[in-house]
Design a protein around this nucleic acid. Structure first.
Lengths: 210, 210
DNA sequence: CTATAAATGTCGGAG
DNA sequence: CTCCGACGTTTATAG
């Protein structure tokens, strides 16, 4: 197998699994590496078959050349359309739960707006604390340095608005990496670790109470 | 199929491909989505088989529950050990090429060190310009905001070293996103777009000359 | 379509 | 093992 595209790669002869999907994608698997193939071509692409050689090419000129020495097993099946996958528990949901009750962040916050717009993008949550001061909250599933930098940029921008300034920052995530915590705290940003299940329970209980 | 782990997901009954690899990983594919499965469990994990139900669990308690209504096709093959994949053209190689001749960045730079160590990690390249001033160079394949933030942190740290200060910054990548460029230039960091093939040719020619 | 942020990211390397 | 950055990231979403 040879790939010539964004990089150049070569794969020696061996027994492998080749998967061709209805969307046109081709992937070549070894018996390890979880679900990731050794090499692949994403759709849209086209397969040119000649005896013992497959050339898989896409629009931008990337190419996968597969040489077939021996076919050990060949099987084809029609899977039909897929009913689709339902997911739950991602950042959007965390944000929803915090918006429903910002006090779970440990202070008497009241929500001003979710997705509060700024010139460089929306802040997850904008709140006011007990003293009426602005608080910008960045929500992440996993809190890493990127998220702290993102919140820092928002805080800088929001701090220029005389109607909001001064603006405090809160970095809330299910998990906060040590480096991110150090950076955040160095910048005066408070870190809050969220437990999704507890949070869901607490907010649900509260909504049930009223 | 149901997944209970970092998130919760449910997949209705349909015809699908289930792939079980020697490393223990399990993945469930629809006939689209390139090579990414609808659901999966990465190794290390364990499969408990009972009639019509597979429970795939890992150490941290994540679980994949697969209900089998009908087996349309079942096939198992020993692929043996994999000879492995050779790659070329990634960031490491760009860094090598720039280290071999930093002047391709457009100034009379001389290399001080590759992977110059700092408290928060190594700088890709540290050079001196024609006037002996320090230049920190961050190399990326794709230049995005993250990379600018990373270089900014390095510049701040290196700038505290009286033997190096003041330190200029250069952000070099095969492609620089508009936001990243704006942020970099706002911080006085020069941006250089690299062409990998040209660069390879130029550096090779120069090495051949001497 | 481009640009940006999220991802059960995955993967590899260093400590 | 954890942390950290690259990735042919891929994927979804907003503009």
């Amino acid at each position: 197998m040879d790939y010539i595209g964004r990089l150049t790669a070569h794969l020696p002869t061996a027994v492998r699994l080749v998967m061709v999907k209805a969307d046109g994608s081709v992937s070549i698997h070894a018996d390890d590496r979880a679900y990731k193939p050794l090499n692949w071509m994403s759709p849209p692409c086209r397969v040119e078959e000649s005896p013992g050689v497959w050339r898989v090419v896409n629009k931008v000129g990337e190419e996968l050349r597969i040489t077939l020495d021996e076919v050990i097993h060949d099987s084809s099946h029609d899977l039909g359309v897929d009913p689709g996958l339902r997911k739950d528990g991602v950042e959007a949901h965390l944000q929803e739960l915090l918006a429903a009750d910002p006090t779970v962040l440990g202070e008497a916050f009241t929500l001003v707006r979710r997705e509060y717009p700024t010139a460089i993008g929306p802040v997850d949550l904008l709140c006011r604390d007990a003293n009426g001061r602005s608080v910008a909250i960045e929500v992440k599933r996993r809190g890493e340095i990127d998220g702290v930098e993102q919140l820092t940029r928002y805080l800088e921008l929001l701090g220029r608005d005389p109607l909001l300034a001064p603006v405090k920052g809160v970095f809330a995530a299910q998990e906060i990496k040590p480096q991110a915590r150090v950076l955040a705290e160095d910048r005066g940003i408070r870190c809050v670790v969220l437990d999704y299940n507890t949070l869901r329970g607490v907010v649900k209980d509260e909504l049930t109470l009223f």
